[in-house]
């Protein structure tokens, strides 16, 4: 069940934006009318969630992004704030930038988020097939860096282990085992294990969450 506030953090390139979008769309598909994705990536202007504007509007998800995202004035600023969106009654999926650097802006809303701890999930997305987070110890280190940067404790691990179109059953189950190991080291529970619909629709795993690839490959269009 989606909470009022879901913060998505992780190593850059781990699949945060793809997960955030899929998570919000899945909640909307269950009939929720109040779901919004907040683009809070102040680090990398490539592939930001704001690029998925059309997909969100087709799926009944509201997009909250800086007014100038993707324009000549795309600078690392936030022109919205979490408490007022909360007052509006939105359930927010907040997509952060990569690593600890990307998690810093969250600190601005730290007091608010702490006082709404019961209604907040802070998720850490990890792909164990990414070069710098291949083993649980490396992943745990990045997780701690993110916690320090944003001043919040991670409440769940999103295991998003994949190798793009080459993902198979073995990669999924190997990822799930590594996520359990990360959970054991860090004391943070596994929130879900993602399965890409592109190549592994039939694969079954505990706490499964299906992820659709939302950005098309320019070579096959």
């Amino acid at each position: 069940m989606i909470k009022r506030i879901t913060v998505i953090t992780g190593h850059y390139g781990s699949g945060k934006s793809t997960f955030a979008a899929n998570y919000a769309i899945a909640a909307a598909a269950e009939g929720r009318k109040d779901v919004a994705v907040c683009d809070m990536d102040t680090v990398n202007p490539y592939f930001r969630t704001a690029d998925l504007r059309d997909i969100f509007s087709e799926n009944g998800v509201r997009l909250i992004a800086p007014m100038y995202a993707g324009t000549n004035l795309d600078t690392p600023i936030l022109d919205y704030d979490i408490p007022s969106l909360y007052e509006e009654g939105l359930s927010m999926v907040i997509d952060m930038g990569g690593d600890d650097t990307g998690a810093y802006p969250l600190g601005k809303f730290g007091d608010f988020l702490k006082s709404h701890g019961q209604e907040t999930d802070v998720l850490y997305v990890v792909n164990f097939r990414r070069y710098l987070t291949r083993d649980p110890a490396d992943s745990a280190e990045i997780m701690r860096d993110i916690e320090k940067a944003c001043g919040l404790g991670i409440t769940g691990i999103v295991n998003n282990t994949n190798l793009g179109a080459e993902t198979d059953r073995d990669i999924i189950s190997e990822g799930a085992a590594l996520a359990e190991e990360l959970s054991r080291i860090s004391g943070v529970p596994v929130f879900c294990n993602t399965v890409p619909t592109l190549c592994c629709r039939d694969v079954k795993v505990d706490k499964m969450f299906h992820v659709e690839r939302l950005i098309a490959d320019p070579f096959s269009k």
Partner: peptide, 8 residues
């Protein structure tokens, strides 16, 4: 494109 894209 090549710099930002991800492939095995």
């Amino acid at each position: 494109l090549l710099g930002q894209m991800m492939e095995p």
